[in-house]
Design a protein around this nucleic acid. Structure first.
Lengths: 151, 151
DNA sequence: TGTTGCGTTGACGTCAGCGTCAACCCATAG
DNA sequence: CTATGGGTTGACGCTGACGTCAACGCAACA
């Protein structure tokens, strides 16, 4: 199997595969023409990586799973290092959710107070300029899974 | 007040202030030497920006608050545009938390299953020996089992 | 007179994970 | 012969919010 077919089968692109190779996540053999050749095991590795990436794992965090598979284990998470990544990720997710909750409460509080002020000041205060623009082309791209973090 | 003092008072750096100016968030006067000069109102604007940034607002999202302050309002969130940003942010936070929760459950499930497998296999001592195809033209890889793949 | 310390502008570096050319090679089909 | 459709490498772009120089000007202090 060559890189185009593998990319299609894994639902990704050739650019991505070459990038993974450059990161050392894929070890690639070449044929007589210098073309990369892959086997079914590479597809498994790739699927493992994609699954993790879709769950918000960074590329580097997939390395233990890849090495676990390459060591001949039936699944990428059959090894202690992979489990450790799972646990770290869980803790990370919990921390992130806690922070998001606190920020959410903070923002909700500010909004509530500001709305009260606005209601109190509205009859006499500054006139509301423009109401919010109608729900036009605002493509809400759900990309951020752990985005609202600082340093 | 010059840029160094303002940066210190706002707990940030001169680079940051110049960056904000380049984004049009700070309108800056110059003295005879070409040095930027700031007043207390600039400090207020800056504090508003920093507070929002610390709560995960993007720089561009702080613009309505800045303009609100510059329009002479007592607080940055005294204007409808600012409130709308608050509301959008709340929705965004809620969506993000929901996604994090689902990912968290997914990962927790995988960890639990993998730990069960590990506990079952550990007493017997799993021997991973078979390796995947190393660099070389042999795409034929006899592999006995397949691991559990998620949805 | 030098040194320190503040200011200025401009430009490149950083982090992740690729997308998007460009310029080329190679094989097969019409 | 050429068009098409693979493959190869290399290099730049993109997103955000700055950090980190470089090379300079200007003022005060000893």
């Amino acid at each position: 199997m060559r890189i185009g077919e593998l990319a299609k089968r894994a639902g990704t692109t050739t650019r991505t595969l070459r990038y993974y190779e450059s990161r050392g996540l894929l070890t690639v053999a070449r044929d007589a023409h210098g073309h990369r050749t892959f086997g079914e095991d590479d597809l498994r590795v790739l699927r493992q990586i994609r699954t993790l990436r879709e769950n918000g794992f960074e590329l580097e965090e997939t390395r233990p799973f890849v090495e676990c598979l390459r060591a001949g284990h039936p699944a990428g998470d059959s090894c202690p290092d992979s489990l450790e990544v799972y646990r770290r990720k869980l803790a990370e997710l919990d921390a992130c959710m806690a922070e998001l909750r606190s920020v959410r409460d903070e923002v909700a509080g500010r909004l509530a107070r500001a709305e009260v002020e606005a209601a109190a000041g509205s009859p006499h205060g500054p006139e509301p300029r423009c109401e919010l623009s109608p729900p036009g082309p605002s493509p809400d791209t759900p990309q951020g899974r752990q985005g609202a973090e600082g340093p």
